[in-house]
Design a protein around this nucleic acid. Structure first.
Lengths: 107, 107
DNA sequence: TTATTATATCGTAATATTGCAATATAAAAA
DNA sequence: TTTTTATATTGCAATATTACGATATAATAA
């Protein structure tokens, strides 16, 4: 085999896993961090920021977009990408809940 | 190719990516969530909680341990796993910083 | 000692990811 | 119109992940 048995897990577990999978590559972490340094959303120069070829960057952007971590809107010839605040707030609150639960533990 | 070009990214970006990679499988999310429901750290029954064979669960536990997300200590014949609070706090603070930065954005 | 119990490792097949050259698309400029 | 510019898609080779049967290890029980 090799395919993950996602049918046996809850929807929430699968959703969380796919969010983390989207962030599980250094290039995609770098993209997020670059988007954070840019003031506006007009940012079609992500390709120049990364040590990867244009098709590869395009593929990484697609994965981040499919996971809902970034949003992209067409701006003439260029495309304007920015971080999806809602998703990142969800992720933060997930870890916030985990850490709250951990406070009542022994370990 | 197929190997990710981790040499071209910063250590922090690679570290974060490997933390997220550890969480990028629903079984491993399920393991974390199960560990949260258990009061003590004595928990050698993760295998019975998951719809996966013992070697597969063992492999997932190893990945979580290697990434520093869980800790495991030998407890006689069994092994006692628990969540590594330090790592999870780090992840929460990473997203907390991101969300703070996002507040000063247009989008 | 010989079970038994709990977990890890090995080996391997199925599948997924990564990266990029080549090519396609689609909007704006000439 | 044709060219340029920006991004996406296709196709494919290299590599990584997932899953599990078989087997190994290592501590306790009998």
């Amino acid at each position: 085999m090799g395919a993950s048995k996602s049918d046996f897990f809850t929807d929430k577990q699968n959703e969380l896993a796919s969010l983390f999978k989207a962030l599980s590559h250094p290039a995609r972490v770098a993209i997020i961090e670059y988007l954070l340094t840019v003031d506006t959303c007009i940012c079609g120069d992500i390709v120049n920021e990364l040590p990867l070829a244009q098709p590869t960057v395009s593929q990484h952007l697609k994965e981040l977009k499919n996971a809902g971590i970034i949003k992209g809107s067409i701006e003439g010839t260029a495309i304007c990408y920015c971080i999806n605040e809602t998703t990142l707030k969800k992720i933060e609150s997930y870890f916030s809940i985990i850490n709250t639960k951990l406070k009542n533990k022994c370990c």
